[in-house]
Structures are given as C-alpha cells and as structure tokens.
Amino acid sequence: MLGRLMKHEWKGMLAPLVIMACLLLGITVFTCTVIINMNTELDEIIENFSTAVSMMTFLLYYAGIVGCVIGITMVIAVRFYKTCYTDQGYLTHTLPVSAKQLLTAKTVTAALSYLIIILLVYISVFVTLSTFIAQAFDEDWDFLLNSFVAVLRDSLGLHNAYPLFIIYWSCCIIVSLICSVIGLMGAISLGQLYTKHRVAGAVIAYLAIRIVRRFFTQVVILLGYQIFDRFTHASWDSTAIHGSEYWRSVIASANFSAQIMLFTIVLISAAIAAGLLFASYNMMTKRLNLE
C-alpha cells in the first residue's frame, strides 16, 4: 500500500514540479543568453542599455530562483493541507492504510520533490555563474571547474577527503530537507487545533517552529565559536600567511567547529522534526476533525 500511496502522491506533485523545472530552465537559458550577448565595447548609450538589461535579467533570475523554492514549499504545504484536512481528507483518511504509511508516503514524496528543485537550482546557479565568469574572464569551463575545486579544497582543508565530504554533506542536506518537510506538515497539523482558523493556526505554528529552531541554532553557533576559540588558543590573526602552519591550524579548527555545529544543528532539527512527526500522527489518529 505504501508504494501505491507514493505513486498517487507523486502523480499529484508531478505537474507543479514540471512547471517549476521549465521555469528554471527558461530563466537560466534567458539569463545565460543575456550574459553571452552583453557587450561593453560599444558606445556609451548601448553600454548603459546593456548594463540595465543585465541588471534587470539578474533580478528576474533571482526572483525566479526564490520563486521556485517558495513555490515548491507552498505546493507541498497546500497539497498536504488539502488532502489531509479539507474535504479531500474524507477520501485520504478512509483509504485502507495506516496513518504511519500515509505520513511516510507524503514525507518521502515531498522531500524528493524538494530535493529535485534544490538540485535544479544548484545546477542553474552553477551554469549561470560559470557562463558569467567565462564571459567576463574569458576562461574555459575545465579551468573554472578546477579552480572551484581548488578553492573548495584550500578553504575547507579537505585535501583527499572529497568522497567523505560529499557523502557527509549529502546526508546533512537530505536529513535537513526531510526535517523541513516534516516541520511544514507538523505546523499544518498543529494548525488544525484552531478549529475556526485552521490556516491562520498553521501559519502561527510554522512561525513558532521556526523561532524555536532558530533559537537553538543560534545557541549552537555561539557554542561553536567557543569551541573554535578553545582549539586555536587565539583569535584569528588577519596577518597570517596563506599556507603557513598557523593558517592551516586555524582552518582545521574552523572546519572542525563548523562540522560539529552543522552536525548539532541537523541533530536539533531532527529532534524537532521527530516531535512534529508525532504531532502529525497524533492529529491524524486521535484529533482528526474534518469539517
């Protein structure tokens, strides 16, 4: 039954996903076309016009990216609300499936949709930035990619630990995405407690969850800085020579602190998500009250 639930969830998510993917493709192609055709070697009027068009295009591109991320969040939220707590809930909650299966199917499908959009956004930003840098500095793609990897290696002190780094970050991103989706669903479920203003209740619950999460994140970041100070035994010396022993030790300490911070933040998000998952489950099994 879980497979069937996921199949129908996926069907429901597909159309908005395709629309957003097309939108991303469209704005990426348009922005890259504008970048490639930017001409600063013409007379002043055309140069000004070209600059203005570029600025407008970048703004449009930014709005498109933000719109896609907000869009997928809204699609997930609205779909969950409609299928679980409006008239459609009469169908959803009378299917021969358990609340656990229902929540699992919705969480997995929504997290996958989120992941797809985030990956598309990363690809789009990478392509657009690469096009811009290639156009501005007249370099080829291989050189740019190698430079990017070199910067990443130096700044993070990774050396040969790329696969581990990528696995670690991928896990963190996936766990964070799942936590975000569960948080969104939890907020909508908690909003159902305000029987007369369910949508307003969901928005208030969502804001409250964000505040709680932000509070704990800030606490972790503050503690992380303390750990960083403790390891370096000194504050950052801006005159440190790039590549020196001291520079390397500071980078290593900063990375260590960052990894601990990241891990703790993901852990806190997971703990909050676990609570919210329980809230959604409880709402569906014990407090469901469809209008």
Partner: peptide
Amino acid sequence: GAETKRIISYLPERTYFDNNMKVSS
C-alpha cells in the same frame, strides 16, 4: 483502522475528489 477501512465503503456528505482529477483517474 486500516483493517476496517478495507471492508467499509463510505460515501460522505462532501465531494472528496480533487477538481483537477479526471473521472478515469
């Protein structure tokens, strides 16, 4: 629960299909 929903066929007062859904779907 899931076991009883398998054997109950329920028609609520509300129309519960998504408006964008086709009858065949």
